[in-house]
Amino acid sequence: RNLTILSLPEDVLFHILKWLSVEDILAVRAVHSQLKDLVDNHASVWACASFQE
């Protein structure tokens, strides 16, 4: 069985995303439609995003 980041529970993905910069979140968003939906549909992803580079 192949395990990917998409195999992780949504709460784990949120925990990972909250540590990323805006640039990295946008890069993750571009990788897969499921990740794009996760980022686009949950404001909590952006609430913790680091807007300082």
Rank of each mutant, 00 (worst) to 15 (best):
L26A: 09
N2E: 08
Q52M: 10
L3G: 07
D11C: 11
K36H: 07
S44Q: 09
L8W: 01
L26I: 13
V45R: 13
R1S: 14
F14K: 15
W19K: 15
A27C: 12
D24I: 04
R1M: 08
L6K: 02
I25M: 09
Q52C: 10
E53K: 14
C48R: 09
L3S: 12
H42V: 03
S50E: 12
L20D: 04
S33H: 07
L20E: 00
L13K: 07
W19M: 15
E10Q: 12
P9H: 00
L3M: 09
S21D: 15
V39M: 02
F51W: 09
R29Y: 03
L26Q: 11
A47Q: 11
N41M: 10
E53I: 06
S50F: 04
N2S: 12
F51L: 14
A49I: 08
L20I: 04
T4G: 13
V31L: 02
K18I: 07
V31D: 03
D24T: 04
S44M: 10
L20A: 04
A43I: 05
N41F: 04
W19I: 11
A47D: 13
V12A: 02
I16H: 00
E23Y: 05
F51I: 12
L20Q: 01
P9K: 02
W19P: 07
F51V: 13
L26V: 07
L26M: 11
P9L: 03
F51E: 08
V39P: 00
K36G: 01
F14Y: 11
F14H: 09
V22K: 12
N2Y: 08
L38M: 13
Q34H: 12
V39C: 10
A27D: 07
H42M: 05
E23C: 05
A43T: 07
E53P: 08
D37E: 12
K36C: 00
V22N: 06
N41W: 03
H32P: 03
F51N: 14
R29Q: 02
L3V: 07
T4L: 01
P9N: 01
V31Y: 00
H42F: 07
K18H: 12
L35D: 06
A30W: 01
S7T: 08
R29S: 04
V31T: 15
S7A: 07
D37H: 12
S33N: 04
A49E: 12
K36T: 03
A49F: 04
I5A: 04
E23T: 07
F51D: 03
L17P: 00
A47N: 12
W19L: 15
T4N: 13
L13R: 05
L3D: 05
S44E: 15
V28R: 01
E53S: 07
S21I: 08
L6R: 01
A47Y: 07
H32K: 00
I5Q: 00
A30V: 12
